[in-house]
């Protein structure tokens, strides 16, 4: 057990004049308690107006990404005591429009995603009573790409996104490469079209913030590198 002070960045859209402010909540935290458990406990026992997104509690739905002690993380996967500090600051993720307290708008995330035509594009019809074949080696190329939970942690941590609100974003590049790398996909030109643009791939300065921010240990920067190669190949080809 340890007494932890949570310093939470709050914002109420109905009170624009007040703007953002910090509110402190003290909580006795035991071993095993995640930041999400703590936030729930504060909401349910101290202050019902504290607002954040959450659903699965198990790191798979992507709802609870927020900035904890300066780093973008999933609240439900972050052990409070592992942060090794009596004070824990919690803020909404940077770069997205604020909605309320720790909740931000996902609109920029969705806009970027849609730009890369995030679906399998095929021209050859599939076999009618069978699956398409894909070797385990071909399938292995999708590992580290398909697991994205769209939490938004990567794009929020990216300086290119801070500078350009129309930047498509590392989450979308990762998705684009998930399809370009898929042996079944026949639409790399379509996925890449929007990326060859000033809001696209060329704005990435390989700072690797996105890699550090990803709670699923995925590597958008590598995907960006591969996509750049693919673009160049297509221009020549």
């Amino acid at each position: 057990m340890a007494m932890i002070t949570f310093r939470i960045n709050r914002y109420n859209p109905d009170d624009e004049r007040r703007g953002h402010y910090v509110q402190e909540y003290a909580l006795d935290v035991c071993k095993g308690c995640t930041v999400l458990d703590a936030l729930n406990q504060i909401k349910w026992e101290q202050d019902g107006s504290l607002t954040f997104r959450r659903s699965c509690r198990s790191g798979i739905c992507g709802s609870c990404a927020m900035t904890i002690k300066g780093v973008n993380r999933l609240a439900c996967e972050t052990q409070v005591l592992a942060l090794k500090s009596p004070n824990v600051t919690v803020e909404p993720m940077r770069g997205y429009p604020d909605i309320k307290d720790l909740v931000v708008s996902l609109d920029p995330l969705v806009r970027g995603l849609l730009a890369v035509r995030p679906y399998l594009i095929t021209k050859t019809p599939p076999p009618s009573d069978q699956e398409r074949l894909q070797s385990p080696e071909e399938r292995a190329r999708l590992d580290g790409l398909y697991e994205c939970i769209l939490c938004g942690a990567c794009t929020s941590s990216c300086p290119s996104f801070w500078a350009d609100k129309e930047y498509i974003g590392p989450h979308a590049f990762l998705k684009a490469y998930r399809f370009v790398a898929d042996s079944r996909d026949e639409g790399s030109r379509e996925h890449l079209e929007a990326l060859d643009d000033k809001h696209g791939l060329w704005r990435c300065h390989t700072i690797f913030n996105c890699v550090e921010a990803c709670p699923k240990d995925l590597n958008p920067t590598r995907a960006i590198g591969e996509l750049k190669k693919e673009l160049v190949r297509q221009r020549i080809g």
Binding site: L120, E131, P136
Partner: peptide, 18 residues
Amino acid sequence: REFEHMGCPFSRTREGRI
């Protein structure tokens, strides 16, 4: 199989099947 046709990244057997 329709899920596979839609693009679901199923794990594969040696023969490339689901």
